[in-house]
Amino acid sequence: METAIKVENLCKSYGSINAVSNVNISVDRGKVYGLLGANGAGKTTTIECILGTKNFDSGTVLILGMNPQKERKVLFERVGVQFQESHYQEKITVAELCNVTQSLYKNPLDYTELLKQFGLFDKLKSPVNELSGGQKQRMFIVLALIPNPEVVFLDELTTGLDSRARRDVWKCLSNLKAKGLTILLTSHFMDEVEALCDKICILKKGTPIFYGTVGEAISCSPFEKFEDAYLWYTDEEGSENESV
């Protein structure tokens, strides 16, 4: 199967601190890959290095076979991104932000359809900064999907969403996945990871400590529930005991 995202031996340090060390990620086309870890574990840094918005120290990154920094213009016609923090102009409305985003691409999707799907159609005229946290979050997912991407990066996909909205977002992404969309996401919700991700990587202080499926993560741990297993992998005390 064709590989959509290929990351090999990615390393990035800030001074003497290793933010990301030796990350290897390979995502096949049409699959969903989850990047997990506590706050500050290096998930966002990893995504930014993959996207080329941060320079990394060593390793190689290919998205759809292209180098994101050197082939930016061609690549980002086919890739959508939702950053963890939302970035928009003061006083801009939903419609204006969608319009500008749509104008950047050669073959974009109709954003009104996407806004309907994500329950934001009645907010077209609203200023973005008057949206609730959950509505903003959904709007930025819409922006990431406007290019009609083959690959989408979603950093903290459903943070701030209520349960209903989270389910709706999952359903939407599952549909897109069925149509062949490749997704790389980070999340703090283990139910979401279980529901969506084909493969995961757990990061701890910038170092990958587990690669595999959710099922494998459970069976390699002494627990039966994924959330317990995840906590077991990332447990601070555990690591100190090991190093003693």
Binding site: L51, T53, R72, K73, V81, F83, H87, E90, T101
Partner: peptide, 18 residues
């Protein structure tokens, strides 16, 4: 300065437009 601070410029870096 504001667009840099709000990272709007960064968002443009992951689009086909400079």
């Amino acid at each position: 300065a504001d667009y840099r601070n709000k990272k709007i410029l960064k968002r443009f870096k992951v689009t086909p437009v400079s």
